[in-house]
């Protein structure tokens, strides 16, 4: 038997140390054995009015973003901002060096010209873009992180093997531990647990 409140079996003191308890519920999580079932269940759960859903799977599942309503990422906006910043930095640098700081005519070329500035501008744009993409992704995902409450789900390790997890987060306005767990079972999830942490 899988206990719905795993922590209820633990002594109070230990619960406190682990950061567990019915007042620190993170989510209800249920598992599916087929990716298609995950997508179908996700869609039905979302139709019930839940908005804060998550899914965990061993490999990318087509259509899950749409099914559980993952909003489009903010990453693109961060990236375009830094791309433009990179281009402006390069042009500004070349202009400042060539025209303001140390004007020197080389090979009869103008002190500043777009023609020879483009390669450096291109490279610096790419550099800024790459860093913004990588670090922005880490920032949005809250990485690096060594702990996540979903680790407390007893079948969590199988999300990287052969199970597909559907998560209804406690932050959802419609969330209720008992009712949400019932809803998950209703759409075919097994091993439904209320996860604390």
């Amino acid at each position: 038997m899988t206990p719905e409140h795993f922590s209820e079996q633990l002594p109070e003191q230990l619960r406190e140390q682990l950061g567990l308890g019915p007042d620190k519920v993170y989510a209800v999580i249920g598992e599916f054995s087929e990716p298609e079932d995950l997508v179908a269940a996700g869609r039905r759960i979302r139709q019930m009015g839940y908005t804060k859903l998550d899914a965990m799977s061993p490999f990318p599942v087509h259509g899950i973003d749409d099914a559980i309503g993952v909003p489009s990422s903010r990453l693109g906006w961060i990236v375009i901002f830094f791309s433009v910043l990179g281009a402006l930095t390069a042009l500004g640098l070349i202009y400042w060096v060539g025209v303001v700081s140390y004007p020197l005519v080389i090979g009869g070329k103008p002190l500043f010209d777009f023609s020879y500035s483009i390669p450096v501008t291109f490279e610096l744009t790419i550099l800024f873009t790459a860093f913004a993409t990588f670090l922005g992704m880490w920032g949005i995902n809250g990485l690096p992180r060594l702990y996540h409450p979903s680790f407390n789900y007893s079948q969590f390790h199988r999300a990287s093997d052969d199970r597909f997890l559907l998560v209804i987060e406690a932050a959802d306005p419609k969330f209720d531990p008992k009712a949400s767990a019932e809803h998950l079972r209703g759409v075919g999830a097994s091993s439904v647990e209320v996860v604390e942490g």
Binding site: G107, S115, Y116, P119
Partner: peptide, 12 residues
């Protein structure tokens, strides 16, 4: 296309 243009522009 820009590579062609820039190298010709620069070598002059």
């Amino acid at each position: 296309a820009f590579s062609q243009y820039m190298l010709i522009w620069y070598a002059n």
